[in-house]
Simulated assay, not measured.
Amino acid sequence: MMDAITSDRDSATARLPGIAICTYEADDDGWDLIEDLSGTPWSPAGARTVPVSGADPDTLAARLGDHLRSGDCRAVLLVGRTRKAGGFRVQMRAENRTLDRTERLSRTGPGLARTTAPVADIIRALNAAGLAADASSEVEEDAGSYILYRVLADLPDGPHVPAIGLLRAPVPADEAAMRKGVKAAASAIAGHLAPQPRL
């Protein structure tokens, strides 16, 4: 009987849409969504977290694209730092530029790609969590913007566009603030995702 209950729970979890959450700065260990000894990462209500380990920008962008194309994930939340003064920032667009910013990344791709995450809801969730936050169209020149463009430009075709977002935390934010910000943003995204269809 217990095996049947466990199987049903695992099946229900598998039907939840996945959100890939990852940091793109290898030296930024300011947050960890594994909160207890189970080794299971925190997940927002209505979704399951798919942790993606950091890597060089090209490898990370390709890895995230694979998660989206396979259907394993319906959303991506990139997490990094803002070099601007103020609080948390949700970056709303990315430019078609190579990592070193010297030329276009794609000759045929659009000059700008807009994020598909629910930005207004993320800002509201961050504010409700007691965190100062705003949305910005300003592109910061780092690996986060590069990966964001790569993922947006390579989105798979289909009726449901995945939610892709970039959350930037202020440099002084400690682990508790980072965790609170990531949870708020991921929960806002999860509220827009429908369960996976039954097979």
Rank of each mutant, 00 (worst) to 15 (best):
H67K: 12
G54Q: 01
A47F: 10
G65L: 02
D56F: 13
D66R: 14
V50H: 04
V50Y: 00
A62I: 08
P44Q: 09
L37Q: 14
L64S: 09
D58C: 04
P41H: 05
V50K: 03
D58H: 07
R48G: 04
R69D: 07
L64A: 06
P44S: 10
S43I: 09
S43H: 12
S43T: 14
H67C: 07
P57H: 06
V52Q: 15
P44V: 10
G71V: 04
G65R: 10
S38L: 13
A45F: 09
R63P: 00
T59A: 12
D56V: 09
S38C: 11
W42I: 12
P44T: 13
P41A: 11
L68H: 00
G46Y: 10
P41R: 03
L60A: 06
S43Y: 09
R63K: 09
L64V: 06
A61M: 00
L68C: 01
T40A: 12
R69S: 09
A47V: 11
G39A: 05
L37I: 13
P41L: 06
P41D: 11
W42R: 04
S38T: 15
A47M: 11
S70W: 10
G71M: 06
P51I: 00
D58F: 08
P44M: 09
P41T: 02
P44K: 09
G65P: 00
S38V: 11
A62S: 14
A55D: 15
A61Q: 04
A55W: 07
S70D: 15
A47I: 11
R48S: 02
S70R: 07
D66G: 14
A47Y: 08
H67S: 02
G54H: 04
R69G: 01
V50N: 01
P51D: 02
S70I: 08
R63D: 14
L68A: 03
R63C: 06
S43F: 08
P44H: 11
V50T: 09
S38K: 14
D66W: 13
L68K: 03
A55E: 09
T40N: 10
G65M: 00
G46F: 09
A62L: 14
L60T: 06
A45N: 13
D58A: 13
L68N: 02
G54F: 03
V52W: 09
T59P: 00
A55K: 00
P57W: 12
S70L: 13
T49R: 05
T59R: 15
P41F: 00
A61E: 05
L68R: 05
A61H: 02
A62H: 12
T59E: 15
P57F: 10
V50C: 05
